[in-house]
Amino acid sequence: MMILVTGGSGSGKSAYAEDRVVSLGDGRRIYIATMHPYDEESMRRVKRHRLLRSGKGFETVERYTNLGGLLLPQDSIVLLECMSNLVANEMYQEDGAHEKTVSEVFRGVRELSEQVRHLVIVTNEIFSEAACYQGDTVRYQEYLGKINQLLALFADEVVEVVYGIPVWHKGGRIS
């Protein structure tokens, strides 16, 4: 089963996704961390997320690009956090997919979902901001939007977390 979890910054989507993985039963719990820690702030965020996951039985695999090249045990329950970071990495890192980001990320997710028992993916809802962007930021939003749409079609469940409250858009409990 694949579950897509979305929400705005600070919405509670990470905590919901972690709890959802735990609720999916026993098995090897793997957290795929996509945030490449490059400064002090990102190191603090990584530390905070590790603290939130402590005691939940996750083993962490850091993967910044090339999701399709990752091999995981079939019985595993995987949390991929987060799609927004993975897309940026694929677009801008030297070893990234660049203009092939959309197809390569989706291919990687499909391959991953075929390997594991359950896959929970966290992504960000960044599309309701009133700000106007230009250049690479617009292209980033376009790529992330296309990937999120593909993931939503492919997923068994799509849930948006708003103020810590899950709202199902597909599968689960439709609210």
Rank of each mutant, 00 (worst) to 15 (best):
G10R: 15
Q93K: 06
L52F: 04
L51N: 13
G57I: 07
G12R: 15
R45W: 05
H169E: 05
E81M: 13
M2P: 00
R29I: 08
R117Y: 05
D39K: 10
V122E: 02
T65F: 14
L71H: 01
T137N: 02
V22N: 05
L86R: 03
G7S: 06
Y16L: 12
R28V: 02
E157G: 04
I174L: 06
T123K: 01
P73I: 03
R20S: 14
E18S: 01
T137H: 06
R44S: 09
G172V: 09
V46N: 03
A33C: 12
T6M: 15
R53H: 04
L52A: 00
V138M: 11
E129P: 04
R28K: 15
Q149W: 01
Y163T: 05
W168F: 13
G171A: 11
E160S: 11
N124C: 14
V46A: 15
K170M: 06
H98W: 08
M83N: 00
Q74W: 00
I126F: 08
K146F: 02
S76L: 12
Q134C: 10
R110I: 15
L67D: 01
E114P: 02
S54F: 09
G12M: 14
P166E: 03
Y133M: 03
E111N: 13
D136Y: 01
F106M: 07
D26H: 07
Q149Y: 01
R139W: 13
D19G: 09
I121W: 07
G8A: 07
E81F: 11
G108M: 04
N148L: 15
L72K: 01
L153F: 01
E81Y: 12
Y140K: 08
E142H: 15
Y163I: 11
V120L: 12
D156T: 07
C82V: 07
L71T: 06
S84I: 11
E40I: 13
R117D: 02
V21S: 00
A155R: 07
Q141W: 05
L67V: 03
T34A: 14
Y143N: 12
L144G: 01
Q93I: 05
S113D: 08
E59T: 04
R50D: 00
N89M: 10
M35V: 10
L119T: 14
V78Y: 08
E111S: 04
Y163L: 10
M2I: 03
G55C: 08
K146I: 09
F106V: 15
G27N: 06
L112P: 02
T65Q: 14
V22P: 02
G7A: 10
Y133V: 13
G68E: 10
I121P: 10
G96T: 07
G108K: 04
S11R: 05
L153M: 09
G68Q: 08
R117L: 12
V167M: 09
D26N: 07
G145H: 08
T123W: 11
